[in-house]
Design a protein around this nucleic acid. Structure first.
Lengths: 193, 193
DNA sequence: GCAATTCTTGCGCGTCGTGCAAGTTTGCGC
DNA sequence: GCGCAAACTTGCACGACGCGCAAGAATTGC
């Protein structure tokens, strides 16, 4: 059993996962405001100072998995067949994401729901997405040469994802999230060129 | 010259405007990180504690005018002719907003540009918009009965506004912001029902 | 004018983010 | 293995922040 990467990178990845995991777990258990950075650091077995070396805030840590998911999505879009149109590539990648990396079990999601209502998390999530818009647009521009259109697509696409999650969290959750998101994506049309 | 509202409401409004104005001015002058809440409070002639009675953070205060603008926009959408479709009402209201409340002068905007690059402001702005999505969707639902579609429209509309501003800030600013935003809105189509 | 409501202020406390410097771990060439 | 350099962790210290609380000041309505 060898580490594929160097020991350093491996250790860092472990610490990061440990911190993000502890942040999410503790926040779901005690509420976001019921947890301090120190609690998270303790649970991960590192100092408060080290926490700050990885994340700038609790919110940052809690949403780490989310960001990682989105980055994976961008990579999937990039890997779609060359001929495929921009919006189609986005839709297909989204479906692929839910297939390849399904959501955790139901009661876990139930707790996550409560957590996600927290305003500072919503704000942070929105901010993260804004930061990703450029990267996504850069990938899209290969399929949609008009930069303005690519940028608009990236932004509205990410917002649609977020809206889908929001609706799903608000609703009884009767329907599956992937179906809901796909339906929303189908309603949207961004004209290029 | 009588105050139209009660003295209390008037005083509060004055203090709020004073704080928000000082926050924006000082932030443009020294950068967001170069200003403390205390600085802002001093400039507005109130205590640090009182600042917190109005705003929860610097970012909150700096973006106050922005939020107010958006709330005015929602009111405009509500006031559009009854027969008008949802998206059309949004587009028309946006144009109206730029007509009724034009942007301040050029050099003021130039400084604002620098300020707006600050990540914590972008995040906060995005968060503010998310908070407004519900209100906007509630107004839209009169014109677009499908709640899901109304919500999606609200979200993508606000994102388009934000994207327009972002593109405008990044670009040389050669074109007028209202034109840019309107063009983006024209590219987008949200299917109802 | 007076009592009730609302707003301001100062104080205190726990938390947060970060620069810094000392200590520890890891990587790598020899 | 050995030892040096780079990278990472940690504790410390500091300014700043957000907010609960209670006392004082302003405003309201009667």
């Amino acid at each position: 059993m060898e580490t594929l990467t160097t020991r350093r990178e491996h250790n860092k990845a472990v610490t990061r996962r440990s911190l993000a995991g502890a942040a999410l777990r503790l926040a779901m258990e005690h509420g976001l405001d019921g947890v301090t950075v120190e609690d998270i650091a303790d649970a991960a077995g590192v100092s408060r100072r080290t926490f700050s070396n990885y994340f700038t805030s609790k919110e940052d840590a809690v949403l780490d998995a989310d960001r990682e998911r989105l980055r994976a999505l961008v990579a999937m879009v990039e890997a779609r067949p060359a001929g495929e149109g921009a919006w189609q590539a986005l839709r297909a990648s989204t479906a692929e994401l839910y297939r390849v990396r399904p959501l955790p079990d139901v009661e876990w999601m139930a707790q996550l729901r409560l957590l996600r209502r927290h305003p500072s998390l919503l704000a942070r999530q929105a901010g993260d997405q804004v930061a990703l818009e450029r990267d996504l647009a850069a990938v899209l521009v290969l399929r949609e040469p008009d930069e303005e259109a690519a940028r608009l697509m990236a932004a509205t696409f990410l917002t649609t994802i977020r809206t889908g999650i929001a609706l799903w969290l608000e609703g009884a959750g009767a329907q599956e999230l992937p179906d809901l998101v796909d339906r929303l994506l189908g309603r949207l049309q961004v004209q290029g060129t």
